[in-house]
Every structure is written in structure tokens, then in C-alpha cells.
Simulated assay, not measured.
Amino acid sequence: MACPICDSTSFSAFGGRTSAVCDGCGALERQRALAREAAGLLAAGDGRWALEAGPLNPRVFGEHLRRRGWSYVAIDRWTTGNPADPRAVGFVDRTVDLSDMRDFNDHVFGLFVTQHVVEEIEDYERALDEIARVLAPGGHALMEIPFARGRTTRRAEPNRYGNVWAFGEDLLDRVAERFDALECVALAEGQYRGELLVGSLS
């Protein structure tokens, strides 16, 4: 199966998973699954603005979206990546905390993308408020936030990735109240399984 981000068919093992990393763009299974399942929403930016929080690298999803006509902005909370999981993020456009995006006006972005970031945010409810605030009418917020069905959200001791929340199924209600519509989309590739929350404004 070719990578939906760069069309490479070469993959490497990572973390005990075979074919985990795309050799062409560095995308992991979760990024490739999102690009595949949300292909229609990522296409044809027509100059609209897209915002990504915590991007993996310049190609995922920045280059991918720019090639499709999006005006793209990348943000990260730290200049060197999450201190618990440091990486090179010198390519990001602005250092911004997801729970305080005062740098951006209301209703600017036609697309918002984030994967495995919200669980690191202390005031995650304010982060959700901010995501909805900067989203434009007709826009979509693509949020992969790990949660467990049949469980209630609880605070957690920071893990090796700096996550401070163990979200339960009640997360869906918290997200849904901020958007006009919410859809859960299954993500799967290889051994990876996740759920993408797609919030939209009319």
C-alpha cells in the first residue's frame, strides 16, 4: 500500500511494528490513516487557511496540504518539541499553546488538524474552546485524541510522552458541545487503531 502523503512504497520498522515509518516522508501509521480516511477534507484548499498543532515534520501535513492549495500554519507549544518526547520542530511557524491561541482571530481556519496533542494539555477544555473559536464556518477540525470507551475521563500521572489526561467516552460529549456536528472515524493501518474526531461548524 502506497503512502497517501508522498506515494512511497518503502517502509521501516519502528517500536516493534513492521512497516511503521514511511521512508519517503516519515509518516507513521496514524498520519497515513488520517490522510487516507480524511482525503476529501484535505483536498482542494483553494487558498483557505489550515492550522496544524504539533506537526510531525514539515512534510506531514504541511507540504501535503500546501500542494493541495491550503495556506498552512504550523504551531507547537515548545521550540524543541514536547520535553518528554523532544524532537526537532524548528520548522513550525509559531510557538503557541493550544489552550491560548490569542495569536489568531476568530473563525479564520477552514481546517484544523492535531493528533495525540490534546491529552498533553492541562486545560484541555479551554483548548477545545480555542479550536472551535478559530475554526471558520463550514470548517472541519480533525482531532485524534486517544480515549477509551466505557471509561470516564481522569487525570493521569504524566507518562513518557507528557500526557496528563486519560480520556474516557465522556470526551465525546465535551467535544460535541463545541461543534455543530461531530463524527467519529475509525483509523487503522497495520497494527495501529485509533479514532478521529471530526468536528464541523455550519
Rank of each mutant, 00 (worst) to 15 (best):
R151H: 15
L56V: 08
A50V: 13
A127N: 05
D100W: 03
E37Y: 07
E195Q: 11
E37N: 11
L128N: 08
D173Y: 08
A2F: 11
A39S: 10
C184F: 09
F112H: 02
N105Y: 11
A50H: 06
H116Y: 15
R155W: 03
H140Q: 10
R36S: 09
A166K: 03
L98N: 06
A188V: 13
E183G: 08
I5Y: 02
F14Y: 14
I121V: 15
D103H: 11
V92G: 01
R133N: 12
A53Y: 14
D106I: 01
G26K: 04
V89P: 00
A13I: 01
R36T: 13
L196I: 04
C25T: 03
A186P: 10
V92W: 02
D93M: 11
R178S: 04
A148M: 09
A53E: 00
R193V: 03
V21R: 14
L172I: 15
R66G: 11
V198T: 12
R154E: 13
E63T: 14
A27E: 06
M143K: 03
A33R: 02
G90H: 12
G199T: 05
G69S: 08
E119M: 07
W49S: 14
T9C: 04
M101R: 00
E52H: 10
S19C: 14
E120K: 14
F14L: 12
C184R: 15
M143W: 02
G138H: 13
R17H: 12
D97C: 09
L98I: 08
